[in-house]
Design a binder for these strands. Sequence first.
DNA 1: ATCAAAAGTTGATAATTATCAACTTTTGAT
DNA 2: ATCAAAAGTTGATAATTATCAACTTTTGAT
Lengths: 226, 226
Amino acid sequence: MFNLENYHLKSSSFSDALSSKELSYFKEKAERIEFKKKHILFKEGSFSKGVYIVRKGKIKIYKSNPNGAESIVYIYKKGDYFGYRPLLAEDPNPVSAAAIDNTVVSYLPKEAFLSLFNRSDTLAKKIVITLSQEFSVWINKMTVFTQFSVKERIALSLLILSKVYQNNAEKKVIISINRDDFASFVGTAKESLVRNLRHFKDEKIISTQGTKIVVMKPDQLHAYLL
Amino acid sequence: MFNLENYHLKSSSFSDALSSKELSYFKEKAERIEFKKKHILFKEGSFSKGVYIVRKGKIKIYKSNPNGAESIVYIYKKGDYFGYRPLLAEDPNPVSAAAIDNTVVSYLPKEAFLSLFNRSDTLAKKIVITLSQEFSVWINKMTVFTQFSVKERIALSLLILSKVYQNNAEKKVIISINRDDFASFVGTAKESLVRNLRHFKDEKIISTQGTKIVVMKPDQLHAYLL
DNA sequence: ATCAAAAGTTGATAATTATCAACTTTTGAT
DNA sequence: ATCAAAAGTTGATAATTATCAACTTTTGAT
């Protein structure tokens, strides 16, 4: 049985893991930063100096290969936090991060994060559990690339991006992403992506508004995934 | 720069995370179990009842798709431990596990593992760090599937399997895996795998002994990965 | 040591996907 | 509102990979 939750992380708020005392420490130490569209937050191989919490806009996490092609590993939205894993592991960032839109983040410097991590046993345990859950999603995503065709991966990606771009207020989801980024997310060529989008348009499953994509019949996308 | 460590987990011993007191508790509660070749330890969707530590042989972790094809996500060897993630997350297993060889494992029941986890702060923190490191590996593996050709993935897999099948005593590595499993590990068809192995044989990079594969010039495999 | 079954291999071909080039539409600065 | 640049789209074709069928080698039980 196909279940979208197996392929996309549930958003879980960073501050939920904190006691009210810890939360006020967090608020004291965190800094608000704005990034313009296309701004690169950090690059693969660099060392994290803090944790980001998205307040507004979308941030893509990606890997570049030596030919210049990039593959997008995840897209974070409002409320999501990231950048803490390499910091805990004391490893360099395995990925780069860049703003898709104009974005606003809260930035918690490394020292403050580690101080919270070390003083709070509940945070460590909460993170273990979160990481364990995330693992399932990553394993599933990995098998998608080996077992699904491009058309299937695009159908799945439309559903995932519907979640990412969903605005609680609105029922209709408008996915605002350029074709290169979408193709990098699916792991295919831009032209192959466009051809498949055309197919879904002909089937009246999606429509476009300018370069934006409107998902009209998500149920019919499910049908492509068994 | 290509670095094999980005694509395969370092083995880390479970017992290293434990104090001597905890270790004796572990030894008291753990049970030795033997599995015959092809025995299925658990299936995707089931709930873990304990943690496995491999003592002898190899165990494959895989996902089956509805068409019956399977894709192998990881191969564990002597000293590796697995099965604790879904247990911590209280999620069903995202994958199945089966013995490739005749194997021997230590089995630590859920209650004993959770008791260790809850009493030991160092274990929780150690696991967070291990999980964080593992994440980098998974992200890298995922991008391999989107950016590497079948030939490149096979070259990489030969290097990874060299690590898995490496016997400390011997310099020469003999990979003893059947072609279906190898193909599932690479994410390709068995025939495509065989044709590429033939290519590497013609180049004198590998040789075969019966159905076993001998990696003779690992450096030349690196050359296929830039 | 024999031999049937299982596993591995090869060739021919089909299906999928990427690449290149030309063209159209959209965007955003003025 | 205009218009050049950027982004998106389409068609033709090439490259990669999967599938099917026939055949060969290896394995493991006797």
